[in-house]
Design a protein around this nucleic acid. Structure first.
Length: 722
DNA sequence: GTGCCTCGAGTTCC
DNA sequence: CTCGAGGCAC
C-alpha cells in the first residue's frame, strides 16, 4: 500500500539506498522519516535479538540506524522517546522499564500424582506440629496457563502493572494492563496499598480468531494461547494490546497495607468484591481426599472451560498458617501445583550428538524429527548423560522400564515442566534391526575428544587441558553475562564473531580489555566492518571501558570456575575483601593443607570440593596466566570490610535459627559479619541476639530460658537497615 | 550417616 | 525448569 511518490522502504533495496541530504529536509518530511525509521530499527532490533530471523543485513541495519541518528542530531525536537539509537543491542526486555517487586513473585512446587500430594500434606503437618487426626483445610483452584501479572493499587487507584520477570524484577506494562477489561482501574474501599496478582490469559475462541486475523493481515500467527497472551501484553504500543482479547483472573497478592481476610478463600472473596474475576471453580477442601476430588472435577471440565489450564493449585487456607510455614528460596511451603500429565508425542530419533558445555561437561542431545508437543514444535531433547541413554539412573535403577535409547528409535517426547523436551518412552518393536547401542567413549573418540567420567559421577567431561573453540566461546559468553561483566553490545553473536576474527580476535577475557588498543594499531578498523559504524564501535569500546572498574565478586564469578557460582563468588569476595588477597590465597593454598587452605575451608558455604576446584584452577599454569593477564587490565574494587563503627550489631554474638525467608543462612551470616557481628551456631549465655524464623525449635526455647533477646527476620533486617 | 535444602550447571524454545 | 551434587544440620 504505497502512496504515489512515497519513497520505498530502505530495506527493499538493501543498504545501497540514497537519501536526501539531511540538511535539506523540511521538518515535516524529517518527522515522517524519523517516525518510520524509529519503527523499522526497533523492529529489526526485536527480530535480531528475539525469536524471528533477522530481517536486515548488518550493513542495511547499520545504514538505517546511522541515518536515524543523523536526523535526530539535526532535528533534536523530533527525536522520539522510544528511539532505538540510545541503546546498543537493545533487547526486548530493555524496551520496558524494569520494576522491582516489593514482595517477590515466587513459583510453585510441582506434583504429578496423589502420592506427592500426600507428601505435601505430611510435610506441612510435620512442620506445624499438627495432630495426626485432624484434616487441614486447603483451597483448590485451576492453574491458568497464561502469564502472571502484579497490579499495584495505591489509595485504590491502579498505579503500576508488572510482569513476573525473574521473580525479583519484572517489566512495567502499566499502559498495556490498563487496556484489559477484567482489570479494574480503581478499587473503591481498598487498603491504602494493595498489590493484586493473577494470570493474564486468552480464551480458545479468541485465540483462533486472533490467529485468523493475523493470517489475513499477513502477520505471524501464535503457537498457542499462552504465547498469544504474552505477545499481546508485551506490545510497545498499548493500542495493539487494547485490540487483543485478554482476560485476567486474580488469585494472590503481594504487598498490602492491611490483610484482606483470615483465609485464602476469604481473600479471594474480597478480591471478587473489588471487581476482579476470580476462578469460579475454586473450592475449599478439608484433607487430601477432598483435594483429589477437586482435581478430578477440574480435570473432567478441562475441555469445556474455553481456556488453557495446566493443573490445579492447592494452598493452605489459613493465612496465619501460611505465614508460619513461610518460604523456601523460590517456593512457598504452603502451596503446590498438581499438574496434569504432560502431553506426549511419538517421533523418530534421528541422531544422538554430544555437546560441550562451558565447564567441559559433555552432554548428549537427541536430534528429533520435528514434532508438535503441547503447541510447540520440538526438534531437540536433552539426554542428560550416559546412564540416561542406557536406561538406568545414577543408582542403577531402571528408567523408562530399563529401555535404552538408540539412533533410529521411535521415541515418545514430552516437555518437562512444559518447557524442557525429554524422552518418556521408546517403542522397541519399531527399533531398526541395525540400531546399535550408543557408546559414549567410541563417539568421543570419533570426535577427536579425550573425555573421562570420574568415579561416582554421571557426567563425562573433557580431560584437562583441552579447550575446544565451543568451550572457549562459552566461557567468554559466561564472562560477559549478566551476573558477571555484563558488557553491553558484547553478546553471544559478537563473541562468536570476535573469536573467529583474525585481525582483532577475542580468545580469552583479557583480550576484551585490550581490544580498543589493538584496534587503534590496526589498519582494518572495527568501525569499517560490516555491522559496525563509527558510533557502534565507539559505543562498544566505551561499554568495555566502563567495566574496567568492577566489583570483586563479579570478577570471581566471571572466571567461571566450576562449583563457584554467583553465590559462592559473593562469599569469597566478602571473605577476602580484595583481589590481591584473593589471588594470593588461591596461589598459596597448597593441595589440601596449610593455613591458606584452612582459611578457605573455614568460609561458611565453602567445602572441600569447591576449595579444590578453586585452588586447582590457579595451579594450572595456563589458567593462572590467563587470569593474571586479565587482572592486569582491571581496576578491581575492594569488597566492603566489616564495619564496626556505627553498626548496631558490632561486637555482638548473633544466632540464626529456624527458616530464613529473605536470605540464605550463608548470606545472613556473611552480612552479619560484614557489620561486625559474630555469628554462632548455638545459643549460650554469651549470645546477645537470636534471630528466629518459622520452625525455630530448641534454640528458640533455650533463648527464652536464658532470657536472650529474640527477634524475627523482618525485625533483624530493619535493625541492620536492609 | 542420613536427609534436607540450595546452588550450580546444562538445556530448549520463544 | 530439572537434575546432580555440595554443604550442613540432626
Amino acid at each position: 500500500m504505497s502512496a504515489p511518490g512515497e519513497r520505498e522502504s530502505p530495506k527493499d533495496n538493501g543498504g545501497a539506498f540514497v537519501d536526501s541530504p539531511v540538511a535539506s529536509l523540511d521538518p515535516g518530511a524529517a518527522k515522517a522519516e524519523i517516525d518510520r525509521l524509529t519503527v523499522e530499527v526497533t523492529q529489526a532490533n526485536h527480530a535480531y535479538h528475539g525469536e524471528d530471523a533477522p530481517v536486515l543485513s548488518d550493513a542495511a541495519y547499520d545504514a538505517l540506524k546511522r541515518r536515524l541518528a543523523e536526523l535526530e542530531t539535526r532535528f533534536p525536537d523530533l527525536k522520539r522517546s522510544d528511539s532505538p539509537t540510545e541503546r546498543v543491542g537493545a533487547t526486548p526486555s530493555e524496551t520496558f522499564d524494569k520494576v522491582s517487586h516489593r514482595v517477590r513473585m515466587l513459583s510453585l512446587e510441582n506434583a504429578f500424582d496423589a502420592g506427592e500430594i500426600d507428601e505435601f500434606d505430611t510435610r506441612i503437618r510435620r512442620f506445624l506440629n499438627l495432630d495426626a487426626g485432624e484434616d487441614l483445610t486447603y483451597t483448590a483452584e485451576p492453574k491458568i496457563d497464561g502469564l502472571s501479572l502484579s497490579l499495584r493499587y495505591v489509595e485504590g487507584v491502579l498505579v503500576q502493572a508488572a510482569t513476573r520477570g525473574d521473580g525479583e524484577t519484572g517489566e512495567n506494562v502499566t499502559a498495556n494492563a490498563r487496556t484489559i477489561r477484567d482489570i479494574p482501574k480503581s478499587l473503591p474501599g481498598a487498603p491504602a496499598v494493595l498489590e493484586v496478582r493473577g494470570e493474564v490469559y486468552m480464551g480458545h475462541d479468541e485465540f483462533q480468531d486472533l490467529n485468523a486475523r493475523q493470517t489475513r493481515e499477513g502477520l505471524k500467527t501464535f503457537a498457542n494461547p499462552r504465547n498469544a497472551a504474552a505477545g499481546s501484553l508485551r506490545q510497545l504500543d498499548a493500542g495493539i494490546t487494547a485490540a487483543r482479547p485478554l482476560h485476567f483472573f486474580a488469585y494472590a497478592w503481594g504487598e498490602m497495607s492491611e490483610p484482606l481476610a483470615d483465609t485464602q478463600f476469604g481473600a479471594l472473596d474480597r478480591l471478587a468484591a473489588f471487581g476482579f474475576q476470580t476462578n469460579p471453580m475454586t473450592r475449599e477442601c478439608k484433607g487430601t481426599v477432598a483435594l483429589l476430588a477437586a482435581y478430578a472435577e477440574v480435570e473432567q471440565k478441562r475441555a469445556t472451560l474455553g481456556y488453557d489450564i495446566d493443573g490445579v493449585v492447592y494452598k493452605v487456607n489459613s493465612l496465619a498458617l501460611q505465614q508460619r510455614l513461610g518460604f523456601r528460596s523460590t517456593t512457598p511451603r504452603w502451596a503446590i501445583a498438581h499438574k496434569f500429565p504432560a502431553e506426549l508425542a511419538w517421533t523418530r530419533l534421528e541422531k544422538i550428538e554430544i555437546q560441550v558445555g562451558r565447564t567441559g561437561a559433555l552432554s548428549p542431545v537427541a536430534r528429533l524429527a520435528p514434532v508438535t508437543v503441547g503447541g510447540v514444535v520440538v526438534s531437540n531433547a536433552t539426554l542428560h548423560n550416559e546412564d540416561y541413554i542406557a536406561g538406568r539412573d545414577a543408582k542403577g535403577n531402571p528408567i523408562r522400564g530399563g529401555k535404552d535409547i538408540r539412533e533410529g528409535d521411535w521415541v515418545q517426547v514430552y516437555r518437562a515442566g512444559d518447557v524442557i523436551p525429554k524422552i518418556a518412552d521408546v517403542d522397541l518393536s519399531k527399533r531398526p534391526e541395525d540400531a546399535r547401542a550408543f557408546d559414549f567413549a567410541t563417539e568421543l573418540a570419533r570426535l577427536g575428544l579425550r573425555g573421562l567420567r570420574p568415579e561416582g559421577e554421571s557426567v563425562w567431561r573433557l580431560a584437562e587441558g583441552q579447550i575446544p573453540p565451543e568451550v572457549a566461546i562459552e566461557r567468554l559468553n559466561h564472562f560477559v553475562s549478566r551476573g558477571a561483566f555484563d558488557i553491553e553490545g558484547l553478546g553471544p553473536r559478537q563473541i562468536e564473531m570476535f573469536y573467529a576474527d583474525d585481525t582483532l580476535p577475542i580468545r580469552e577475557p583479557a583480550d576484551i580489555f585490550t581490544l580498543a588498543r589493538r584496534d587503534a594499531r590496526n589498519l582494518s578498523r572495527l568501525k569499517n566492518r560490516d555491522g559496525f559504524g563509527e558510533r557502534s564501535a565507539g559505543n562498544l569500546f566505551q561499554a568495555i571501558e566502563d567495566r574496567r572498574k568492577i566489583s570483586l565478586n563479579r570478577v570471581i564469578f566471571a572466571l567461571g570456575i566450576r562449583h563457584v557460582g554467583e553465590n559462592a563468588a559473593n562469599l569469597l569476595a566478602r571473605h577476602y575483601g580484595s583481589w590481591t588477597a584473593f589471588h594470593h590465597a588461591m596461589i598459596s593454598a597448597g593441595a589440601g593443607e596449610g593455613p591458606a587452605w584452612d582459611d578457605l575451608l573455614a568460609i561458611d558455604g565453602v567445602g572441600a570440593v569447591m576449595a579444590a576446584s578453586l585452588v586447582g584452577t590457579f595451579a594450572q599454569a595456563a589458567e593462572r596466566a590467563s587470569i593474571e593477564r586479565l587482572a592486569e587490565e582491571l581496576d578491581v574494587e575492594d569488597s566492603r570490610r566489616p564495619m564496626t563503627e556505627g553498626s548496631p550489631v558490632a561486637g555482638k554474638t548473633v544466632v540464626f535459627t529456624g527458616t530464613l525467608e529473605k536470605m540464605t543462612r550463608a548470606e545472613a551470616k556473611a552480612r552479619a559479619e560484614a557489620l561486625g557481628a559474630k555469628v554462632a551456631g548455638s545459643v549460650s549465655a554469651k549470645t546477645d541476639l537470636v534471630v528466629a524464623g518459622p520452625g525455630a525449635g530448641s534454640k528458640a526455647k533455650q533463648a527464652e530460658a536464658l532470657g536472650i533477646e529474640m527477634i524475627d527476620e523482618d525485625a533483624w533486617l530493619r535493625l541492620i537497615g536492609a
